[in-house]
Nucleic acid binder design. Structure first.
Length: 283
DNA sequence: ACCCAGGGTGACG
DNA sequence: CGTCACCATGGG
């Protein structure tokens, strides 16, 4: 990997990042493609991301370079991780989607986003999140275009059920309000940050609307627990159809994942999840 | 009209 | 401990 910063454009050379996979694989919901350029908001900053002979991010201030390096999880060598996987089924699924990469996203945004994800589909999750940002997020301008930051917990805690229903959150509206209040009135985010996987998951599950699956997504996408293995309907189909294993209990799947994929099982999960959606694997 | 989507909650055995 | 109806909402 090689990094350059010129004219507020951050160039990342020799990184296997495919924006169309990274931003459309269901981990993040706020980047949208237009004429080959992905534009979105992360960490309160609006940026455009293009793939040329490098990955280009604009605009980036000098002091924010480490922020974006970490956002794209560039401390981890994905090629090395893939090289250590022995499972041929996984490697075959990975073959054409090597540019996948887990983003290190903001905890509160990830928590609310995946509360919304419950019994929902990726397209509508994104639409609902955009509605929330337009209704409650701080405006951000980029080249005359208006964007919105993800709303603060303080602001979402003041929303009403009816307002959130109008945003399309559905029955998850009270979960969002109550979780926002709990985030404000406790130190739960810092506590989760300092805990190992199991107790961190247990603590996250005390938030309204957060159960085992959503907690795993939060730990994987916002707290760098790459062993977290979210078990949604797609991944259960993969385990059953592709691996031919009829595992029903979460712990059985977790044990299988840890044995088969190792410490980075969560990254394997994301590859498998994306593969399943691309191939529209049926139950 | 029914089924599905990155499920969680509460009630009931 | 397990099962199950219910929860909004848009698209197939």
């Amino acid at each position: 990997m090689r990094i350059e910063l010129k004219q507020k454009t951050l160039f990342l050379y020799d990184v296997d990042i495919a924006p169309e996979i990274v931003f459309d694989c269901g981990q993040a919901f706020r980047f949208h493609r237009e004429n080959g350029v992905y534009t979105g908001v992360a960490m309160g900053k609006a940026v455009r991301i293009t793939k040329t002979d490098a990955i280009e991010i604009y605009p980036v201030e000098k002091e924010d370079v480490p922020l974006w390096i970490h956002y794209f999880d560039l401390d981890l060598d994905y090629a090395q991780i893939r090289a250590e996987w022995a499972d041929k089924t996984l490697l075959k699924c990975v073959e054409n989607i090597k540019g996948m990469r887990l983003l290190n996203q903001e905890p509160f945004e990830t928590i609310i986003s995946f509360i919304i994800s419950a019994n929902n589909n990726v397209k509508r999750i994104g639409k609902t999140i955009e509605n929330l940002c337009e209704a409650y997020g701080e405006p951000i301008f980029l080249e005359g275009e208006k964007f919105f930051a993800f709303p603060s917990a303080e602001r979402l805690a003041l929303a009403t059920r009816e307002e959130l229903l109008a945003c399309g959150t559905g029955y998850r509206a009270p979960y969002i309000i109550e979780t926002a209040k709990k985030v404000i009135n406790s130190d739960i985010l810092n506590e989760v940050k300092g805990l190992p996987y199991e107790p961190a998951k247990k603590l996250l599950c005390t938030l309204p609307g957060v159960g085992p699956k959503v907690a795993d997504c939060i730990l994987l996408f916002a707290f760098e627990h790459k062993n977290a293995f979210p078990k949604d309907v797609w991944i259960r189909r993969v385990i059953k159809t592709v691996y031919g294993k009829d595992l029903k209990k979460d712990k059985e799947i977790d044990d299988f994942a840890a044995e088969t994929f190792g410490a980075y099982a969560g990254i394997a999960q994301q590859y498998l999840f994306h593969y399943a959606r691309l191939k529209k694997i049926a139950g």
